[in-house]
Design a protein around this nucleic acid. Structure first.
Lengths: 239, 239
DNA sequence: AAGTGGTCTAGACCACGTC
DNA sequence: ACGTGGTCTAGACCACTTC
């Protein structure tokens, strides 16, 4: 099971304190935190210890630091969230920005597979968002997005979803998506793919199965994307 | 173009010095470096500055640190290199360890596409390694690997390649692979795929196009892998 | 006990952005 | 000129490993 630490460095405690403040919305996205010095004074530790924590949170992309200005809550703006987790591009080329087109939202009981994937109770409900996205005016990608209804209450009442849901999760629900696990495989286009993506039945389709995790390791979203594979690739750099 | 720094922190210089020593083989993989204190003394900087650099190199997976013992050159052992860059797994499941089967090595002139991809001269030669790998005894994956001949001289004379080439690059040629850029797309199985992977022509195939970069950003290897897509996925966690 | 990396401190100075 | 983050130092103590 979990390790008994028996020893807990000071910076770990400071880390937990600051993460809690961020999660509980002590500062809004884009807002600046107090300076290192004032945080150090308030928490009764040295500036170096505060710095270590702020650097770690910056590496996790929860904060942004700007020399000469201050430390800010990172904003999952449309642009940034898109390029962070949207991995579709032209072969060898620059990132693409998809446009949204048709979209449908409904709330319903979670299916068994969804309960298993998202660690939900037997009677849990989910919000399902399905949408098609265009690249250069052509339908290129179809997404089925499932989120537990209780963590995004009222989301179905919105007129339209933003292009990147993750900025909505952050600003309206205080949920920071910090990691995603993705599994990619190939399939043949079905009749539905033909209808939605305008590809021939039997042509190759890239399927991306993504689980999105919040700062507290909570499973927030299950997303399955079907992408036409002519002239598009899933691009990632591993270090 | 490149930025004129105009200002170069001390730790950057220390970083360059230590990277050069590692690259030039001052210590063998698995060997320990001098302690922080002695490095600091030798280089005429404080221990804190040396520590900052050693931590950075550890994050780049070039070094490993063990409390109470020392700092070591990271070994690209078979196991570790495999799990670091081999991203094929069962859906939702644990990593798989592929076995190698048939293999062919030849040296030949670089093709135009290869010269472009690897930044090679017009008359450059390359080593091409093609091999098929098994998972659970079944052919699952076929790789075509192209490396500039001048950076791995004599590699074609080896009796057999190791399961992970990256450990060979490190131990025999002093090349540390620190990053890969991969592009994944879907295709339909060709007649060659049918022969090599025992899949029906027209079934879905996952194609992975990988460029491997060394510590000095040198393009070391271009690898194209064709993977049967039944019961296998390309799995990656983004943070 | 000795040596290593890991944490923490206090203070100095530098580079950057704003006023 | 001032406040911010970024770098650098010197020294102390802690935790882990080995002898």
């Amino acid at each position: 099971m979990t390790e008994t630490p028996g020893y807990r460095p000071l910076y770990r405690q400071v880390y937990d304190i600051l993460v809690n403040r961020v999660v509980q919305g002590a500062w809004r996205p884009g807002e600046s935190l107090p300076s290192e010095q004032s945080l150090a004074k308030e928490l009764g530790v040295s500036q170096g210890t505060v710095r270590k924590v702020l650097d770690a949170l910056t590496a996790e992309k929860l904060l942004e630091r700007r020399q000469g200005k201050g430390t800010y809550i990172a904003e999952h703006t449309q642009e940034r969230a898109l390029f962070r987790f949207f991995k579709i591009s032209r072969p060898g080329g620059a990132r693409l920005k998809p446009e949204r087109t048709s979209e449908a939202v409904k709330v319903r009981a979670a299916r068994a597979a969804e309960r298993a994937k998202l660690d939900l109770d037997r009677d849990a409900r989910v919000v399902e968002i399905t949408r098609t996205r265009l690249i250069d005016g052509q339908p290129a990608l179809h997404e089925s997005i499932v989120v537990p209804a209780h963590i995004v209450p009222g989301i179905e009442k919105r007129a339209a979803m933003p292009n990147t849901l993750y900025s909505l999760y952050q600003t309206d629900y205080g949920i920071n998506i910090v990691a995603t696990h993705e599994e990619v495989h190939a399939e043949l286009a079905s009749a539905a793919d033909q209808r939605i993506l305008s590809v021939a039945v039997g042509s190759p389709i890239l399927v991306i199965d993504r689980l999105a995790l919040s700062l507290q390791e909570r499973k927030v979203e299950w997303r399955v994307s079907r992408v036409r594979s002519d002239g598009l690739v899933y691009a990632v750099t591993l270090t």
